[in-house]
């Protein structure tokens, strides 16, 4: 069953552009073998890290969105762990987002209905409240 995934990589800053492309191509090759598709490749380029990793203060960030079978990640993970140029990586499943988003939209619709009703009630009560406030002032 195909699912949407996101892969995030931090590559060693000493790597050349060719080496970065090689890493991306190897991932793409594995995905193509598993009959998946690559939707998007985000290359952020060099960025400062919040803390040094393997004594490097910079890193090359790459993010890849894919649509593959989950079993393909067995070989992808092994490759990424073994390669020396990749310092860190993250693999996320994005299906959960849709489920959560659907839940939230239902919740917000409910809240909108409630807020509309409360506004109507407020408008009615505002017209009634004004004379009461005047009475309070007169008492003082």
């Amino acid at each position: 069953m195909k699912r949407k995934y996101e892969i995030g990589l931090i590559i060693n800053p000493e790597a050349t552009e060719e080496e970065v492309r090689k890493i991306i191509d190897t991932i793409a090759g594995i995905i193509e073998k598993a009959k998946g598709s690559i939707e998007n490749i985000d290359e952020w380029g060099r960025r400062k890290l919040a803390f040094p990793i393997q004594k490097h203060k910079e890193g090359i960030y790459v993010f890849i969105n894919t649509d593959v079978v989950g079993a393909a990640f067995l070989s992808i993970e092994r490759r990424l762990k073994l390669s020396e140029k990749v310092m860190r990586f993250v693999i996320l499943r994005l299906d959960d987002r849709l489920k959560k988003a659907n839940k939230l939209t239902k919740k917000w619709r409910r809240l909108e209905r409630i807020s509309r009703k409360s506004q109507e009630i407020k408008e009615e009560s505002m017209t009634n409240e004004k004379p009461k406030a005047r009475e309070a002032k007169n008492e003082k």
Binding site: G8, I10, L49, A50, F51, I53, G59, Y61, R88, V90, L92
Partner: peptide, 11 residues
């Protein structure tokens, strides 16, 4: 926690 792992934020 994910952002910490990817060195966007400090530990």
């Amino acid at each position: 926690k994910r952002a910490r792992h990817m060195a966007f934020l400090k530990f």
